[in-house]
């Protein structure tokens, strides 16, 4: 399922434009990350994708259909949305009820729903009778994610899914998102953590001041100094090191050391004769 923005303008009030002509396409099955400073318009873009906001001008197309022509429930069947704060989303008294909520709202087949919910409970390791409000922050975020995943929407939009999570919880959430993407779901994610972006996203769209300032394959964008400056971004550590090396010695620009995107690539560039090394479990 594709998402297409065509010269989209949007604002919350007439005096403060938030998006000032945004155009991009997210192809079916892609994993795209939106990056940029606070106030760049990323979250507004996400709200336009699932129809919580309508564009003032321009078009937002989901599989070729403008969001203005779709009811919210029709959009909810196509686009799952994970909010930054799971407490906005959770509203039921048990984990099981919470996971079933979306099916009820969308008036879907409840037999199929029960089967899918059982599967998700097993996959995520939830206790179905737990009170969601008594779970810790990370587990609540996982539950909010699970309630999106269980609906099996072809597109999933994630607004800062790792905010407020510790490293272990962050890895767990991102692992689930990775599996979701591997099953063919289109994933659109807003994220401030460039390490996470570098590890998971196939493509990055950079926003600044209501405009798309750059877009392309993840490392191509994250290695572009002009883009990084324009959007006040700090690249992942390895890219940072290689960019610093390029600055120290311009002769290194084309060398494998200065083009390394991962720890393994950097190590291979420094010690090309060394045996293959596994970096599994090594902290970034």
């Amino acid at each position: 399922m594709t998402i297409e923005f065509r010269d989209v303008h949007a604002s919350y009030d007439a005096n403060t434009p938030i998006l000032r002509g945004v155009s991009f396409t997210v192809n079916d099955g892609e994993f795209v990350a939106f990056v940029g400073t606070n106030g760049a318009g990323k979250s507004t873009t996400m709200r336009l994708v699932n129809g919580l906001m309508k564009p003032e001008s321009g078009e937002v197309l989901i599989d070729g259909v403008p969001t203005t022509q779709l009811k919210t429930s029709e959009l909810a069947r196509r686009v799952g949305f994970l909010f930054q704060n799971p407490d906005s989303q959770i509203c039921c008294n048990t984990v099981r009820e919470e996971l079933l909520f979306g099916f009820r709202a969308l008036k879907m087949d409840m037999d199929d729903a029960a089967r899918r919910v059982d599967g998700i409970i097993a996959e995520f390791g939830f206790n179905p009778d737990d009170d969601p409000f008594l779970l810790n922050r990370g587990t609540r975020q996982l539950l909010a994610l699970a309630s999106i995943v269980v609906l099996e929407t072809p597109v999933v939009v994630l607004d800062e899914p790792t905010t407020g999570l510790d490293f272990r919880e962050c890895v767990k959430v991102m692992d689930i998102i990775r599996r979701l993407h591997e099953r063919g779901t289109t994933v659109v994610m807003v994220c401030h953590d460039m390490e996470v972006v570098a590890d998971f996203a196939e493509r990055v769209i950079v926003m600044s001041d209501g405009l798309v300032v750059d877009q392309g394959p993840t490392f191509e964008v994250l290695r572009n100094r002009r883009t990084l400056e324009a959007a006040s971004l700090v690249p992942p550590q390895i890219v940072d090191i290689s960019l610093a090396l390029q600055l120290m010695d311009p002769a290194l620009v084309e060398s494998p050391i200065a083009r390394a995107n991962t720890l393994a690539e950097l190590y291979a560039a420094i010690a090309p004769d060394a045996q293959a090394v596994s970096f599994e479990g090594v902290a970034r």
Binding site: R47, N50, L52, K71, T72, S73, A76, R77, V79, F81, F83, N85, S88, Q89, C91, F101, G102, A105, L106, S147
Partner: peptide, 17 residues
């Protein structure tokens, strides 16, 4: 908060309108 909660439920398919 209520607006945020309603938006979250709208995104899950609840039709308040």
């Amino acid at each position: 908060d209520m607006k945020g909660i309603m938006e979250a439920q709208t995104a899950r398919g609840v039709e308040f309108d």
